[in-house]
Design a protein around this nucleic acid. Sequence first.
DNA 1: CTGAAAGCGCTTACAG
DNA 2: CTGAAAGCGCTTACAG
Lengths: 365, 365
Amino acid sequence: MAQTKSAERGLSGATVYDVARLAGVSAMTVSRVINGRAGVSAGTRDKVGAAIEALKYQPNLAARAARTGTLRVGLLYSNPSAAFLSEFLVGAMDQCGQCGGQLILERCDDASSQRAAIDRLIDGGVDGILVPPPLCDSRSALKRLAEIGMPSVAVATARPAAGVAAVRIDDYQGALAMTRYLIGLGHSDIAFIKGDPKHTPAQLRHQAFEDAMREAGLAVAPERLAQGYFTYRSGLAAARQLLAAPTRPSAIFASNDDMAAAALAVAHGMHLAVPGALTVCGFDDTPVATTVWPELTTVHQPIADMARAAVTLLVEEIRRRRAGEPRAAIHQLLEFTLVVRASSSAPDGPGHAGAAARAGLDAGR
Amino acid sequence: MAQTKSAERGLSGATVYDVARLAGVSAMTVSRVINGRAGVSAGTRDKVGAAIEALKYQPNLAARAARTGTLRVGLLYSNPSAAFLSEFLVGAMDQCGQCGGQLILERCDDASSQRAAIDRLIDGGVDGILVPPPLCDSRSALKRLAEIGMPSVAVATARPAAGVAAVRIDDYQGALAMTRYLIGLGHSDIAFIKGDPKHTPAQLRHQAFEDAMREAGLAVAPERLAQGYFTYRSGLAAARQLLAAPTRPSAIFASNDDMAAAALAVAHGMHLAVPGALTVCGFDDTPVATTVWPELTTVHQPIADMARAAVTLLVEEIRRRRAGEPRAAIHQLLEFTLVVRASSSAPDGPGHAGAAARAGLDAGR
DNA sequence: CTGAAAGCGCTTACAG
DNA sequence: CTGAAAGCGCTTACAG
């Protein structure tokens, strides 16, 4: 029995006491160094650091949690895309693991069950709550969390409520970059599929599209705009409508990947070569972007990193609450990436070569 | 400070001692009842149970882990579908939470990094490893885990290696049920898109299709079979090939949802109404099944439940190893469900009405 | 700047 | 069938 002890605790069974003995200090001091607390001389700090290295010491998170009280991080999720959820979970678990926190999942499907789900998390003793989309855009959910003073972080909402911490990319800049990229390729007649107006990113993405077009001196005719709702099916209808116009656009920018995938399906149905006859772009870089063919040019959101950042922000808010300090409510912006894949190219259909020529972009032909 | 104590531990700050006092027993006995250990009289058990109820007592997982040594469950994942991963994570985290275990994720992208990923998990001190697809079909990964005597559970592999515990659905019965359902609808000319031959479920699903057809006295012409690789793109090519045959089948059964979604896209491109002119079915019930339009009839795998079962099996294997008992290597089969959605119906194309009539199924027209 | 002591809530031998 | 005691590895007041 006794000989299995070290095996049960990974390869290095070292404890604070082993480190303390080797470094010639007390366990207390080791603890102080590990937790980066002030009031340790540089020399002592180095000695302890060396001992930790030598012993390959890793703190026992369970023991720490027993003393400190485990940080319980609640995650309120609601029918999100599986792609978003899996990446988000990977990032959140990773960061929770780093700080010995425990992640507790609670699902709520419709708005009416939000309150119940929040109550279940509270009953479960969570110290703070992560609110990914689409819940992060729900006024009532956020309001309830604020009322009970629960530390919380909204993730990927374009216009976070004041007073609530948030992590997101800049949807406006992302859509601006995509539109400028298309214009740079030589497209001047670009259609846009709008997202669900209830989700805040939809508005910013649309606004950025219009602004980038105006900035380039390009017009956006009403028939180049279609309303979608972020679903594949709504993308099907929107793309059919856009491509039924008397003259066809040379590119379609859909405000998420699901709708872009639908536009691709409609284009194939009309025997339009993508990207030759029609360029199609999405937003989010979800797995569907690399599932469909050709793979989608899109804007990548670093979801796992956003989750890690959200956990870090939440832990800080929890600390502040315990210390009696006011909320920090930091809004953190992460970098997006424009990912160019096979679904976009310079326009080259019969009606578009001229446009490209006018823009002086196909001089090489 | 002291008054925040109970707040830090959820609503009920009760400990074993509180329960013990109320029940008039010792903390030890409470512990025994909680852990379902034998050697407690029915009367005592009831008293303790009542006290737990009254105090809304919830065991402090961190404290338990500090004493027992946290169970560290490794999850070796490798570029799986996001849909699979998110559901799997939800189930695995849930079950790990129940037993105070900690889930540690390790990603390995290609076969060459498998060994390194396994070593990282071992260095991280995991007690056992969960192996979801496609890694569960990797001989080398499983062999390595067996060599070092690491308790492990393969998930969703159709033919688990002997000596390794496994959780799965019966792919053969699932594909048999789907084929019989199509035949029952009146289809007699059914095409099949095979999956990646490297993945074990692919073979069983194909075999079941052939067997169900034979059982009904129906022939499967060579041009009704196409090779796919579980990807959307391979499904596109396979469906084009199947639908280019001189006579068209009335139904296509793809051995996963991604390929069925591709078949749908090809059908739309050929202006074939689904399900009117062509029935399309998938397998797995991933989110794409409800993303595309019409939504796919498919076979549902209860992935979250499979993850829960896998964690339970793994914990048991770990216990056996610690107790010096031999591996149990249980193979657990979970129920699948045939989910009928809008992509399937009785055949009613010009060439197929006759077939249905012959089967006596459209007497109502 | 550093340490000896007490304790987090639970469970594991060991007794009865 | 039941319990008193010791201890998991860590950290938190309290001293110096």
